[in-house]
Design a protein around this nucleic acid. Structure first.
Lengths: 259, 259
DNA sequence: TGAATAGTGTCTATTAGACATTATCCC
DNA sequence: GGGATAATGTCTAATAGACACTATTCA
């Protein structure tokens, strides 16, 4: 019996369907506060939010107006939620092909006053300099970066507080458990630049101690020295440059790790 | 301006909406092959699939008939996809309140011939003895367990091959990186029982070596000895019983781990 | 020369990993 | 005693973590 035959008998109306299918994106960047010449940077993990306009594109009163929210929008029928997130991020910031990852589905009944609306939550990592091109679109009155510490004190739209809390937890986890820190850095970086990225999410002494970390980085299997390449952008002493090796799976079971 | 006012102007019809919203569940269990009295078990990681019936509940030809598929079904408007997965799992196996986790969204256009249908993928862990109650429901001609090695050789419905590959990767990862092995074991277990679970997904010598593992288990911060409790179910020599400590976050950064 | 970051020398306590040995129990 | 699993003794090589020290450069 063929699928074709079966399809003739199929009726979509037999189940209620959602009223909307959207993708939201938590766009993270790291603000590099230059402390001075010949100094390693101080870094702060930031999240980009938009302020919802009073009126929508059609000039009608907007839902959750004047609250801060994650950028996002409706998924088109010819794309996946992941592709929609990529598209929307590019529309919003003119950035494409950067790190973007799905991390959750938000579909609790009542989460959106407009009806049964499902949101796919993604987080993206955009290097600071790429974000300069950001712009407010029709629905947004403002676009701004907030540190992950202050962002939860805002008046947030829909269930975005919950989504943002999860996004922050996920990126903190991923920064320490995967080589995703790569996305915040240039291709070649010094030990202190990588250290600065990690210090935005941990105070593990193995990472915060300069000597320990500068030694450790040489032995990590997913990082390699760029032989002979040094820079002076973080110190007067020329500093060794490193890069991430191509995709590596790091899986040390918790049952054999050291504690 | 209130949300109430804004809602009066809102029109659902302005965006196309999905034709269906479903939850699928990869139900894993571990088959404990008893080798004999006073021996630790040999374990195999199994996945439960259903065989789609020729005819659906209404007596009409079924889509993807006679192929093997993940159990699942449509999400109701008054529940989340996660709740739907829990409900469906209970309908299918009479098991409730076990480990269940969302791990992905499958929404590529064309993945289901019936239209724009979004599936939330979950994996669940069900102890072997609970699965005995499993039954085929209306849409299923058969229910069966397959080892994760043989399951990919089956003729699988929709895009379930892709979903199952991801599910297997996720559970292998989680077994080694989180204390989820707990869900496969009784409250109290011996080192060799835990070891048998882990051996279904790794051949790391730190785990496969009896002496090494029986020593290591004593030092793991998320496992504690049940003082004075021993069992003889795995050997003639009484063996120490252990249990998982209450929820613990295990985060050893890859940047400080030992390699 | 002073100040600052990068990087090394060296010591200690811990431990992973390996191998040998002992313990316990049932038959 | 034989056989099997559990658990400990012991040695070695590796290394995390800490502290002191040296190297490099610019002002």
């Amino acid at each position: 019996m063929s699928n074709k035959e079966a399809l003739e008998h199929y009726d979509h109306k037999q189940f209620r369907t959602p009223d909307g299918y959207t993708s939201d994106i938590a766009v993270f960047t790291i603000l590099s506060t230059k402390i001075g010449e010949f100094k390693p940077p101080h870094m702060t993990l930031m999240l980009m939010l938009i302020k919802r306009a009073q009126l929508n594109a059609e000039g009608q009163p907007n839902i959750e107006a004047s609250k801060w929210a994650l950028p996002g929008g409706f998924v088109q029928p010819d794309e996946s939620a992941y592709e929609a997130a990529k598209r929307e991020l590019e529309e919003e910031t003119s950035v494409n092909s950067i790190h973007i990852k799905h991390f959750g589905v938000y579909d609790k009944p009542g989460r959106d006053p407009r009806g049964w609306i499902i949101s796919n939550a993604h987080y993206a990592i955009v290097p600071e300099h790429e974000l300069s091109k950001r712009k407010a679109n029709d629905d947004a009155a403002d676009v701004r970066l907030f540190s992950v510490d202050e962002v939860l004190q805002l008046d947030l739209a829909f269930d975005h507080r919950e989504i943002i809390e999860a996004a922050i937890a996920v990126i903190k986890h991923d920064l320490l458990q995967t080589p995703v820190a790569k996305s915040f850095l240039q291709d070649h970086f010094t030990y202190s630049e990588l250290q600065a990225v990690l210090k935005t999410v941990t105070n593990d002494p193995a990472i915060t101690s300069d000597q320990a970390f500068s030694r450790k980085i040489k032995t990590l299997p997913f990082i390699e020295e760029v032989s002979g390449q040094k820079t002076q952008r973080t110190s007067k002493t020329p500093t060794q440059l490193y890069r991430f090796a191509d995709e590596m799976n790091i899986v040390r079971p918790i049952y054999s790790a050291r504690y």
